[in-house]
Simulated scan of single mutants.
Amino acid sequence: MAFQFNFSIEEDEENEVEIFGDTMLQLGSIQASLNPERSTEDSKEFLSTEKVAYTESLIVSEATPRTADPVANCNPDKSQVHVLPKKQACFKVAKEHNIPEDFRKVLENKVLEVVRGLYYVNISVVEMTLSDNSHEEDIVSKSISSHSDLITGIYEGGLKIWECTFDLMDYLSEAEIQFVNKTVLDLGCGAGLLGIFALKGNAEKVHFQDYNSTVISEITLPNVVANCTGGDGDDDGDGRISEPSSKRHKKADFRPALIYKCRFFSGEWTEFSQLMLSGRKPLSKYDLILTSETIYNPEYYSALHDTIFKLLDKNGRVYLASKAHYFGVGGGVHIFEKFIEERNVFRSRTVKVHDEGLMRYIIEMSFKNSS
């Protein structure tokens, strides 16, 4: 199947952000996002008839609607990239998210599904519950109204499970990467599947970081809770939390892991690393940093590089999964590796290549002076 993107640059006179305000339009967008039969042509026609202008925005638009299927959600053949004018960088202050004492509340109104043996919340249901603009960040309505997966400085794609996540999970399993007694960071975690994978591998500590606080509270934390409690969530029998009974675990099996092993953070990478380094307790640097599809935008490379430099243990390893190139955005494996080479701090090597369709890579990074 051909991998195609539309590249366009749009400007308006004042470079202001315009969000669709019509309620019926938002409802129609939500319904379309849950209807996998809506055609690509319908989406293109919709976009061509509505004026959408953004400031500080880099938008990855889906030509087809979202589905609950994570593989369908991250199919690159169904994406288009629009580069819109950037006015000024916007950084979200980092903060730590507390783990609620009552796990039951974390999974309220969530529908659980299973992928690769791990629980994850149905993202379409989450979008429906957050589409009333009541949440502080309001990323759902903005994403729906713009038919966008990325809005620079506002939303960085955490509501979607990207395909390279599964590539990296497969590699970690095939290479038999050991997590026992390791401190792990899932950087740009989104759904948190990589960190959950490490947690299931008996990692000593697993920290989760995403740009958006909404993603952490509504997607990442519920996913970790579901996997740490076997998907139980103290369901009260109302039918809103679904799970395959054959895969249930005892509720107490992983509960201590969630409380004592996991921490959750949101905010921009530079802000996140500063938060970690300024803590009252000495920082135990990470043995492993796992990250997927975080090098799509070269403008973020410096912050990503510096965050890894500050938080990775001197003998630690980074495993990064990425597409070869992100059309319309300019990022990708080769340009990132060149950036790494110029900085001359890390060495990198390709450990796996997926050559079907658009090429995808797994690369390993470590300090040049590491053992």
Rank of each mutant, 00 (worst) to 15 (best):
S246E: 14
D22Y: 09
P256G: 09
T55Q: 06
S246P: 01
Y155S: 00
Y54N: 00
T23Q: 12
H325R: 04
W162G: 10
E56W: 12
R343L: 05
L288P: 08
D287P: 01
L118M: 11
C74A: 15
S242A: 05
F179H: 11
S29T: 08
V115K: 03
D12G: 02
I335L: 11
E342L: 08
E163Q: 12
V93K: 13
P222A: 07
N15A: 13
T291F: 11
G279A: 15
G157R: 02
S29N: 13
V93R: 11
G231M: 01
D238L: 09
Q4E: 14
M359H: 13
S366W: 10
L150E: 05
R317V: 07
F46K: 07
S43K: 07
M169V: 12
H305Y: 14
E37Y: 05
Y296L: 09
V329C: 15
G195T: 01
C189V: 02
T55I: 11
A53R: 04
L25Q: 15
G267M: 07
R343I: 01
L168Q: 08
I241L: 11
I144D: 02
I139D: 01
G316C: 08
G28S: 07
D253H: 04
L185E: 00
V184Y: 04
G28V: 07
L277V: 04
V225C: 05
V114D: 04
L199Y: 08
A321H: 03
D253M: 01
D77E: 15
